[in-house]
Design a protein around this nucleic acid. Structure first.
Lengths: 209, 209
DNA sequence: GGGAGGTCTGAATGGTGATTCAGCGTAAAC
DNA sequence: GTTTACGCTGAATCACCATTCAGACCTCCC
């Protein structure tokens, strides 16, 4: 994919990360090029040296952050054993926890911004749809394997993937916005409950965090 | 509540509706006061005559639109019979369908904007949390009645309410963004599937749209 | 040492858009 | 018929911010 991280390429990524961080902390509408530049101790002109316009920068940053999130999860999944354990990782990665992410901003902080922008930015919409599809495919594959291994009851894996992905998105919104009724722990519990109920995961193999 | 709709009060609502419509069509960040004014054929100064600032206008508009949505659904629910029928109404009201809403913009178009703004606007966050809580309470009450009437299997109604609300939010996002895998019909089917599975609704009483 | 190319910046530029304000029209009140 | 209050607007103001550009610095190569 990337032959060698050239200087300018790493600088680009640095800017994308700074942009993500700025959107996460100041909000999409309040993000100025100067804020992003401050974040990496550079001049505003530098940003426009690497990106043709603010709009394209925002778009690319949202895509970038989404990719980082997906790749991080993918990496964690490879280290897991059973299908149930993999679903557990997936769920916990989707729970907005304040403590995690000492350095980088969590991906889910940017989801509302990405959704809002996608409505009018076709290239972002396309990228987002692609990543979402692969996210669901990942869920579907895990469940498929779990069923094949006799770990889960048989279900329509595609329907299940859409449902779980949607459930996680919806729950993550509540948690992220600090809804007093739904914190990260309850989100995790409710998501696990859905999985266990639907797939009839035997309690014995369940991950209880 | 409202003793009589005074002139200035109805004008206020007109502006709030115009603001919602503008956010829905142009997006949160691209919404200018001039756009809103154009929408009702007035001058930009009028907007600031009724609202102290653009920020407070946006906040109030998002709250207003949310309230309208909830009240609309509440009205429809009162006309329904069984608990299952009520859940059906709730689900279908949450499905972003292009055809509905000839006049006013659909509430769900504004959800991402509301989520994005809530992150930095405490008053919007509080209003949103309150409305969300009442939305879930409505679901919980319906399910509670359904269980009492022997229509549903017993479950924890609060947990169920959070799950269904989250599932609907998550699915609505996909549909709204035009995800090719999830359209309004599939959303409705998947939400009904979750309800039926969880509450063991007998197929005989089910609404098949 | 001198050029060349790549990286970066300071200082304009220019447009945009929120906000202000002095006042216009009108209709009811006296 | 004059006053008053209200609903509204046109025309500034005023800041802010994306974008541009003319170079500075630095490093590598000849």
């Amino acid at each position: 994919m990337s032959p060698r991280p050239s200087l300018s390429e790493s600088r680009r990524n640095e800017i994308l990360a700074a942009t993500s961080a700025t959107i996460a902390s100041r909000g999409l509408c309040e993000t100025r090029i100067a804020d992003i530049a401050d974040h990496i101790g550079a001049s505003p002109a530098l940003i426009l040296y690497y990106f043709p316009s603010k709009a394209s920068l925002l778009t690319e940053a949202l895509v970038y952050q989404d990719q980082v999130f997906h790749e991080t999860v993918k990496g964690a999944l490879d280290r897991a054993g059973s299908a149930a354990a993999k679903l557990s990782i997936l769920i916990d990665a989707s729970c907005p926890r304040a403590d995690r992410s000492a350095g980088e901003p969590d991906g889910w902080l940017l989801w509302p911004a990405a959704w809002e922008m996608s409505r009018h930015d076709p290239s972002l919409a396309a990228a987002r749809a692609r990543l979402d599809e692969s996210w669901r495919a990942q869920i579907a594959a895990i469940v498929h394997d779990g069923i094949a291994a006799g770990e889960f009851d048989p279900v329509d894996v595609n329907d299940f993937a859409i449902q779980l992905a949607a459930l996680l998105d919806g729950l993550a919104i509540e948690v992220m916005l600090g809804d007093p009724t739904v914190d990260a722990d309850r989100m995790s519990r409710l998501a696990h409950d859905f999985v266990d109920r639907t797939l009839k995961t035997p309690a014995i193999g369940r991950h209880d965090r």
